[in-house]
Every structure is written in structure tokens, then in C-alpha cells.
Design a binder for these strands. Structure first.
Lengths: 196, 196
DNA sequence: TTGCAAAACTACGGCCATTAGTTTATACTA
DNA sequence: TAGTATAAACTAATGGCCGTAGTTTTGCAA
């Protein structure tokens, strides 16, 4: 028997995240969320400004959760090992919270501040993990963009059911990660081997 | 002065594609499409079954257009040159028709037949272009998945505004393509160099 | 010229987001 | 412990959307 006065902003955002994880393909509605929370739709407006604002909050929530996971994955590792762990942690996150991962993609324009902060955390993690490879500033950005594109693309296609062939997806993902690490080792190794 | 009896299924689908290209971020509505076509919303139902069915038709239209572009890009090229041309053609397509590219992603479940056909065309193009590398069946699938993931991921992040750093995006894309081609050459080259 | 099929229309129902105004529960104060 | 203020719930209502039913109109074909 739920008493009144039990919701708050975070509880609504987390419930929305659960809802889209349960049904990643259909989009979030306030009506469905209210039903799920045992509340009338207008009551949600005591805690959120609008559906769009809620979507933004969910995106921030997802980006923060993702950053936590990636940061944890990198603890105690360095170099190629850390990069591989991060890549797999990203894929694990998307598998565990598919709706949240999707919601994090659709970038809203306004109120970028919080989302940018969450994205900045992830960027910092990647930068620190790439440090030992001693890339130039430009190369580092290329490398970060490449990693993000590869991992995000693979996971998105996988979740959309875009990979139909009967070959193990884990192996394909490992193939992709290996490609990235080999390229990085080659670039970095070439520089180390040719010091002056 | 538009006369009556001028719409048909293809015209509606193409108008929908134009509409989402003009506004890739907001989703397709029949009301807006009808306004754009100078027609009342129910009139559209003479040519489509439902909004969902229209979305599927737009996805098929987009996948077919993409397949055409990729096929054209590969004409007269082979090996690494063909792969690079295909990657760039994909990115060009997404830049030219951002809404159509997005619509092609969201894979509907039902009526997969037509979409599967369009996807099969693209798969065949990639397979034929990869032939000279003489990969095993499994390696070929890994290679196709990797290419799709990289290109799709880069383009998706680029269009979502996910790349904020001030470094040229063309160069980053080239970095990614080079990584792929180098990996492929190494694998293939290793096999050729070590024949027995 | 006339008839018919298809493509347009009007009218309507149901669901959704959102706003306005009201009631009620909880927490703080005395 | 009793009273009050605040905030969170509610009901009611609006306008937009998709989709259906039934009607009118158009353009082609006989």
C-alpha cells in the first residue's frame, strides 16, 4: 500500500530507465511511466518539467552509469589490457541496459551541460588509458574517435539485430578490439623503436 | 494548382524521406507529412497501411538507396581501393540524407522480407569486394561486421554531434579506414607469404 | 456523355502530453 | 499533541496525433 509523497526526481528518472530497458524498442511515454508507478500522469509534473526534459535526464543518467562502468573496468589495468576491458565493459553495459544505452545516444540539444559533463568523464578515462601510448594530441583524438565509433557501432548494430550471419558475436567483437589494439601498438611501437 | 488523384505509394514514401531529411531529429508524423503534401491526414491511408508501415517502407527505400550508392562506389575498383570507396560512400550518403540514414537503422520486426533483400544486396557487395583477400568464411564475416560497425558507428556519432574535439572529422574517418585496411592487408598478406 | 473505381474529404474516437485548479497527506511548529 | 503550511497527489479539460467510418468528388474508360 504505497503512501503518498513518495516520488522524487531521481525516482522518476530511474523508473523511466527501467521502463525503457524492459522495452527498448518502444518509446518512453509519460502515460506508461505513470501507470508503472501507480500514479496519474499529471502527478509526474511535480518532479519533471516535460517529457523532453525527462528524456534528457535519462540520457544523463545513462551516460553517468556508463562512465562508472568504464572507469571501474579500467581499474588495475593499463595499456592494451585497459582498453580491451573498457571496450568489453561498454558492450556489457549495452547488453545489460539496452534501453538506457539507446536513450544515451539520442543527444538532445538544450541543457547540454550535464550531458557534456558525463561525456567528459568518459573522455578523460579514455585519455588516461591512452597515455602510455604516447600519441600526439591529434593522433589521440583520432584514436579516441576510432574506439568510440567501433564499439558504439558494433553494439548498436548488434542490438538492432543487424548481424544475421551465424558466427559468434563475441568473436567478432574480439576481432574488432584486436584490430584496434594492433593498430595502436604498431603506431606506438614504431615511434618507440625509432627514437631519434 | 495540384489536381486530385496525384499521390501514390512511392510518392508518399519519397515525400516522407524528404521530410525526415529536412528534420532528422524530430520524428515522422502523418499530420506533418499530410500538410507537406497539401492533403488531409486520412487521405494518406489510401496509399499506406499505417504510420509503422510507412516507416518500414522508408527504411527499405533508404536501404535500397544506400545499396545503390555503395554498389556504384565499388565500380571499377577492387581490393583496398574499393573498400575505402565504399566506406566514404556510406559516409557521404549519411551526410546527404541524414534522416533517411537514421530511418534505415531503426529495424522494424515485421515484414522483414523487403528490408532483408536490401540488406542482402549490401552484404553481397561487401563479400565480392572482400574476395581478393581470400579470407576464410568466418574471417570474412568478422571483417564485414567490423567494417559495418566502424563506418556505422562513426557516422552515427558524427551525426549525433558526439565528436566535440576540434580535429578534422575527415581525417579521423580516414584514420579509421586506414586501420581497417592495414589489418586486412596484414591478415591476408600473412597468409600469402606463408603458403604451406 | 455517362458510370465507376479510387482518391480525396468530413466527422469522430481514443490515446497522449500538458495546464489549471483542487484536495490531501506529511512535516514542521507551537 | 494540535494546527498549519507546503508540496505532492488528484480531477477536469485542451489540443494534437493516429486511425476508422462513411461520404463526396474526380478522372479515366466505355
Amino acid at each position: 500500500m504505497p503512501s503518498k509523497r513518495r516520488l522524487n526526481h531521481d525516482a522518476v528518472v530511474e523508473a523511466a530507465a527501467e521502463l525503457i530497458d524492459a522495452n527498448p524498442n518502444q518509446e518512453l511515454t509519460l502515460a506508461e511511466l505513470a501507470r508503472h508507478l501507480g500514479v496519474r500522469t499529471p502527478s509526474l509534473y511535480n518532479h519533471i518539467g516535460s517529457l523532453d526534459e525527462l528524456r534528457q535526464a535519462v540520457a544523463v543518467y545513462g551516460a553517468t552509469a556508463l562512465g562508472d562502468r568504464l572507469g571501474n573496468a579500467a581499474i588495475g589495468r593499463s595499456g592494451a589490457s585497459a582498453l580491451a576491458a573498457i571496450a568489453w565493459a561498454y558492450r556489457d553495459f549495452a547488453a545489460a541496459r539496452p534501453g538506457l544505452h539507446l536513450a544515451t545516444q539520442r543527444a538532445p540539444q538544450a541543457d547540454e551541460v550535464e550531458l557534456a559533463r558525463a561525456a567528459g568523464v568518459i573522455l578523460d578515462i579514455l585519455r588516461r588509458v591512452l597515455e602510455p601510448f604516447e600519441l600526439s594530441e591529434t593522433e589521440e583524438i583520432h584514436a579516441i574517435r576510432a574506439l568510440r565509433a567501433m564499439v558504439h557501432g558494433f553494439v548498436s548494430l548488434e542490438q538492432a539485430g543487424g548481424f544475421g550471419m551465424p558466427v559468434d558475436l563475441d568473436e567478432s567483437f574480439q576481432y574488432l578490439v584486436n584490430m584496434y589494439l594492433a593498430h595502436l601498438a604498431e603506431d606506438s611501437g614504431a615511434r618507440v623503436r625509432k627514437p631519434g
